[in-house]
Design a protein around this nucleic acid. Sequence first.
DNA 1: TGATGGATGTCGGTT
DNA 2: AACCGACGTCCATCA
Lengths: 247, 247
Amino acid sequence: MTDSEYGQRTETLQEPTPPVARDAVARGIDRGAIVTVYGRCTVDYDGRATSYLEAGDRHLMLKPDGAALVHTDEGQQPVNWQPPGCDHAVGCADGELVVESLRSTPDERLAVRFSEVLQVSAFSGTDENDLALTGTEEDLRQRILEEPTLLENGFTPLATERDTPAGAVDIYGEDAAGRAVVVELKRRRVGPDAVSQLRRYVDALERDLHADAAVRGILVAPSVTDRAGRLLTEHGLEFVSLEPPAE
Amino acid sequence: MTDSEYGQRTETLQEPTPPVARDAVARGIDRGAIVTVYGRCTVDYDGRATSYLEAGDRHLMLKPDGAALVHTDEGQQPVNWQPPGCDHAVGCADGELVVESLRSTPDERLAVRFSEVLQVSAFSGTDENDLALTGTEEDLRQRILEEPTLLENGFTPLATERDTPAGAVDIYGEDAAGRAVVVELKRRRVGPDAVSQLRRYVDALERDLHADAAVRGILVAPSVTDRAGRLLTEHGLEFVSLEPPAE
DNA sequence: TGATGGATGTCGGTT
DNA sequence: AACCGACGTCCATCA
């Protein structure tokens, strides 16, 4: 039922007793493995908020970086979790397997109590490669910097991440008439929040450059919602429809 | 090595051949189980963006609601995923196990190709219970509605989720002098975005109630950042420090 | 189905 | 350690 010889890349136990499960989990954590436990459990969380989950069958994953995830059979998001950097502890109490993940700053505690353990697994392996992702806001920025005319004729980018009292502007530049232009980029359709963000930057830059300077604000995104479009008009801001490159 | 009798709550195979793995995954999906695969794989994603991940050892989880998660040994978030509502398909190609998850609106495709399958598991179970969570924004709202004096003496809540052209206001009410008050709630320390949000609501309500009416805007949160504090002052908005109740 | 805003958001960069 | 904004954000709610 197990393949627990030293050096194996996986080690799995079916319906172990709590002490056996505890030792397997502890050994997996020690070896730097991804450890999973499936079984009937309750979950306590206390930290930034507080939660409790009554008994049910769930899947717990403990990662060597200190992350913990409790998954039910629904949803992309775990029902409970702990971020990387936590310390995992495992033990038996009242004949149950108990897994705890703790961290400080902020003080947070996750406790999973298994009344029944159906399976414990430990997975060791290597993963050297990083994800290659395209279609991000950064890609959209590159596209505009390489071909500023996409924004409008005569636009000249002068800086990216230009600092203002309100934060860093995505692209700062000049139009054909020499007016200052603030560009805010979004990789997808935007709502009111993006308009407010652009507005903050334009306001801040107008103060920074002295009161006389009128600063143009251009929102670049695939599209805007109705309300966002109205907000743009109200605030005298502009919109240019552009998407991140497909690849 | 397996406990695949019909009706078992878990079914696990160690190092199955691709066709055997394929059948186990298909059977697990059919039964409405949570299916996991651990092994060496590459991951292709195409949809709202595009990504590719070179070979490495990873953990794939397929949920009966159509969600798919690819986890490495690091991070709380999956390196690749597909949201609930997808169709999972499994097959063999070039002697490899291939799992695909597809959806439309938007069109998105996730493909995981295993050059080596170390373990396949299927977990069946029941989970009737919902998470009980406290310390949310909703709890903060309840706290204020029950004791409006926490906000300020003489405050009278008149509505929650009051609609304005800019969206729904968390709490709408009147102060002791009968002036309209817009309250924006945040469960934790806030930055500039929350201030802009409150500003949009105050603006919208002032227009809605006619130009003469001065509307007060109060941000309620545990604390604000420096920049947010400055923005509040600039916009003539107020701040009251309150947290969600501890339990 | 789309819009809107909350979230124990998480994550990365920078100060 | 805090601040800030992006994210293939996810997610519930409501129109």
